Amino acid sequence: MNETIIVIGSNGQIGTELVMNLRAKYGNDQVIASDIRNTDHPIINEGPFELVNVLDKDNLHKVFEKHRPTQVYLLAAILSAVGEQKPKLAWDLNMTGLIHILDFAVEFKTAKVFWPSSIAVFGPHSPKENTPQFCIMDPNSVYGFSKLAGERWCEYYFTKYGLDVRSIRYPGLIGWRSEPGGGTTDYAVNIFHKALANGKYESFLSADTALPMMYMEDAIRATISLMDAPAENLTIRSSYNLGGISFTPAQLSAEIKKHIPNFEISYSEHDPRQAIADSWPKSIDDTYAQNDWDWKQKFDLSSMTADMLKNLKGSIHKTI
């Protein structure tokens, strides 16, 4: 069967790499990149591209009607830090956009839909260590409770309409190909850019704030692996926990210093992102992903740091 795949939000941190990997797997013409704006990124010119605003229902319907996708990846979202600055917009984009996609996927008989959730669905009363798949979930950010509500909608559409929706609760994502998109875990990307640019970084999170993270290569591999898994193997239709690597800014800094000995890190005080981070898990139990679709992580803190620095060298300018 020939696949026709639409990636909505293709210009973002996940989207750019996902489009590249999907095109390598299925062919350039079979993967339609789409976003609310054009960019000069090569994915725009290497295959089909559509301008898409997930809040524009009429235009979105026309895109579904034109391409009749067999798979849709919905990545368009407002992330945690930006969401606290624009809460109503974040809720509208994150929720209404998802409902539009789910409705059109049912209407056009799309075989599979991927929608990303996040560790932000957990809250102050969720277990902090090895946070399980099922537990108390009381998120205190707009991003968090929009993701939790989205999980319920995904499972509802699977149960009520038989729509094959699949999802991952991503930890913080670290990659070198694109800029971060306004999340609480962004420090773990910015720190590499600053380390190479001027050897210094001021972290907006405290030295001992442990959070689950994942290297982008692992995140993309997990996403495609989940979408390739036989439907009968999947027991979670809300969103799968994904563990990643748990570390603090101090531990990441120490690892960077092995490559850049003069690197210095400092810590700001009273940043609003600290409160968000404090409500999130320190580590994640992803046993269901391991058992249901044979998930195995490849990168640890050491190998991720080495790969980030290797790929960023030569592309970072002193003006950053």
Rank of each mutant, 00 (worst) to 15 (best):
E3P: 00
Q13D: 06
G15M: 10
V19Y: 11
Y26D: 09
G27S: 11
I32A: 10
D35E: 08
D40S: 14
N45C: 01
D56W: 04
D58S: 11
H61A: 08
F64M: 05
R68E: 06
T70C: 03
Q71R: 14
I78E: 01
L79Q: 02
V82N: 05
L89T: 06
L89Q: 04
L93A: 00
M95S: 10
H100T: 04
F122C: 14
K128C: 10
P132G: 04
P132C: 03
S141G: 06
V142F: 05
K147P: 06
Y157G: 03
K160V: 07
G162H: 08
G162I: 05
L163W: 07
P171D: 06
L173V: 14
W176D: 09
D186N: 12
D186Q: 07
S206K: 11
D208R: 10
D208H: 05
L211C: 06
M213G: 01
M216D: 06
R221G: 02
A222K: 01
T223Q: 02
M227D: 05
R237H: 15
R237T: 09
N241Q: 15
L242D: 05
I245D: 13
S246E: 15
S246H: 13
T248L: 05
T248N: 05
Q251W: 01
E255N: 03
H259M: 02
N262H: 06
Y267Q: 00
S268P: 00
P272E: 10
I276G: 02
D278S: 13
W280E: 12
K282G: 06
S283N: 08
T287F: 01
Q297A: 10
A306Y: 09
K318T: 11
